[in-house]
Amino acid sequence: MNTADTPTRNGLRADLALISEWIKPGTRVLDLGCGNGALMAHLKATKQVRGYGLEIDPDNVIASVAAGVNVLQIDLDEGLAQFEDKSFDYVVMSSAIQEVAAPDALIDDMLRIGHDCIVTFPNFAHWRLRLKLALWGVMPASRALPNRWYDTPNIHLCTVHDFEGLCREKHAEIVRRHFVNHAHRAQAAMRLMPNVLGEIALYQLRDRP
């Protein structure tokens, strides 16, 4: 997650708090790119959720271990072939899809492994980013995307339209979607024009039988 300022709700990063609301108690969760393990630790403590977090960064692995999370130091770019079909109730990927080598292959894996998938990503078609590119002609940065073009880990940025296009291609059912601003608050207008006004998109997907 690259957000420079990260608002929190009940001690949990706001986007993770939103994801947490979508997850039913007592379920099995696989968290791809679990960072410091905050979401998994929260779900374990408040919803008796069991599962694993995958993380590649050593410091995050240590933080997750310290948080008592079942963290596995695994590179998402190596694929998830080791996980069985439908072995988790939810496969979550929060603000990581733009950092992986093959987002489409990863979505395939998520749909295969999880009964439901929850994906969040920064919307690259937000009006402020569009304006920066249109008026100043530079690669836009924002509070949700603070890196510069040459040092960014975000190699596969996409827009709301792009993502839904991929979902159509993958025959994935969009169970629900939600859009928030950089402070992770939803505004009514976002629902009307999510691809322009939504800064961060949250999707719940399911494999169409």
Binding site: P58, N70, I74, Q82
Partner: peptide, 21 residues
Amino acid sequence: SKEIVDALVDAGKDVAYAEVE
């Protein structure tokens, strides 16, 4: 080591895994 981890995950057991450079 990943074979051990994968089997523990398949068995639904608690496991953490670190791969040290």
